[in-house]
Simulated scan of single mutants.
Amino acid sequence: MATPAQWIEGARPRTLPAAIAPVLVGTGAAAYLDAFVWWKALLALGVALMLQIGVNYANDYSDGIRGTDENRVGPLRLVGAKVATPQQVKTVAFTCFGIGAALGLVLAITTTWWLLVPGAASILGAWFYTGGKKPYGYRALGEISVFLFFGLVAVLGTTYVQAEKLHWTAVAGAVAIGSIACALLVANNLRDIPTDSVTGKRTLAVVLGAANSRRLYAALIALAFILAAVSAVATPWTLLALVALPLAAKAAKTVLSDAVGPALIPVLQGTGLTELVYAIGLTVGLFLGN
């Protein structure tokens, strides 16, 4: 039986900035349009957190039953480490998805019913990332999914439920946050290339190879900061996002230095922190630019 601390570790709290950041930026874009609605922002945050935690447990379950986590370098996996049964982890994953779906339903009822479509797609995307007979995360499509759901859908959805319209600053923020979230996954999969290659997990990092994955990471990080500068056309306050630049530079330096295995673990934390600080800076800038 897993301990509470192990369940918390299994939820992978270091990945939660990937859920918080897009809601912050989407809310900032809504505020820029003078349409900030605090309770809808909180509901959107609840949806994002539940989906992020749910997908972490779902990945734990699916990778665990396939045996791809048995020689894992990174954080604890409950099923792979045999501290929880697959059914227990699966149940917790679906409970998180259910809570997220309920919160999303409230947002749809109070905004527009068509929001149920991207909401349902997000849950299905979370499960089939590593679940099902043909998980797309094993076919080098993980980064596309992260960009779509934790970038475009999360940011633009958060903006829309509050403002009921979009603005190009929201799109720029969505692409930027999606890029950093993708970089986080690239770093994770770069670390796992040796074990994923052996177990048949064909991530984008496995397909591209280590050298190209390192270049992709740097390009994604650079794109986010370029978009912050572009957004300054709307309001120069968006340059506050550049406060995250030192964090990003430190993480990118490690990635580009040919670090491997455990040496890449701090990059995950650094990239997650970069995303969160970037989002805070951009959000404050959009609020001030109202």
Rank of each mutant, 00 (worst) to 15 (best):
residue 243 V to D: 03
residue 152 L to C: 05
residue 5 A to Y: 09
residue 126 A to W: 10
residue 160 Y to P: 10
residue 176 A to D: 08
residue 158 T to F: 03
residue 189 N to V: 04
residue 276 L to H: 02
residue 288 L to G: 03
residue 254 T to P: 04
residue 189 N to F: 03
residue 205 A to T: 01
residue 264 L to M: 08
residue 252 A to W: 03
residue 76 L to R: 13
residue 198 V to D: 04
residue 64 G to D: 00
residue 69 D to V: 09
residue 140 A to N: 05
residue 45 L to W: 02
residue 248 A to G: 13
residue 35 A to P: 10
residue 99 I to V: 15
residue 178 G to S: 09
residue 178 G to E: 04
residue 180 I to Y: 02
residue 181 A to E: 02
residue 288 L to Y: 04
residue 145 S to W: 12
residue 56 N to M: 10
residue 163 A to K: 12
residue 72 R to N: 08
residue 38 W to E: 03
residue 39 W to G: 00
residue 68 T to W: 07
residue 233 V to I: 14
residue 44 A to N: 07
residue 173 G to R: 11
residue 99 I to N: 07
residue 140 A to D: 07
residue 117 V to N: 08
residue 2 A to F: 09
residue 220 L to H: 06
residue 191 R to D: 00
residue 30 A to P: 11
residue 183 A to N: 13
residue 36 F to L: 15
residue 279 A to H: 03
residue 84 A to F: 08
residue 114 W to Q: 00
residue 3 T to P: 07
residue 116 L to H: 07
residue 218 A to F: 08
residue 216 L to P: 06
residue 167 H to L: 05
residue 221 I to F: 06
residue 235 T to G: 15
residue 216 L to I: 06
residue 200 G to F: 05
residue 258 D to A: 13
residue 272 G to H: 13
residue 212 N to K: 14
residue 90 K to F: 14
residue 175 V to P: 07
residue 42 L to H: 04
residue 251 A to L: 05
residue 40 K to C: 03
residue 80 G to I: 07
residue 271 T to I: 12
residue 244 A to Q: 10
residue 134 K to T: 14
residue 7 W to M: 02
residue 264 L to R: 09
residue 270 G to V: 05
residue 15 T to R: 05
residue 235 T to S: 15
residue 193 I to A: 02
residue 252 A to P: 01
residue 252 A to R: 15
residue 171 V to I: 15
residue 46 G to D: 03
residue 185 L to K: 05
residue 52 Q to D: 01
residue 267 V to R: 11
residue 249 A to F: 12
residue 47 V to W: 02
residue 63 D to E: 11
residue 241 A to M: 08
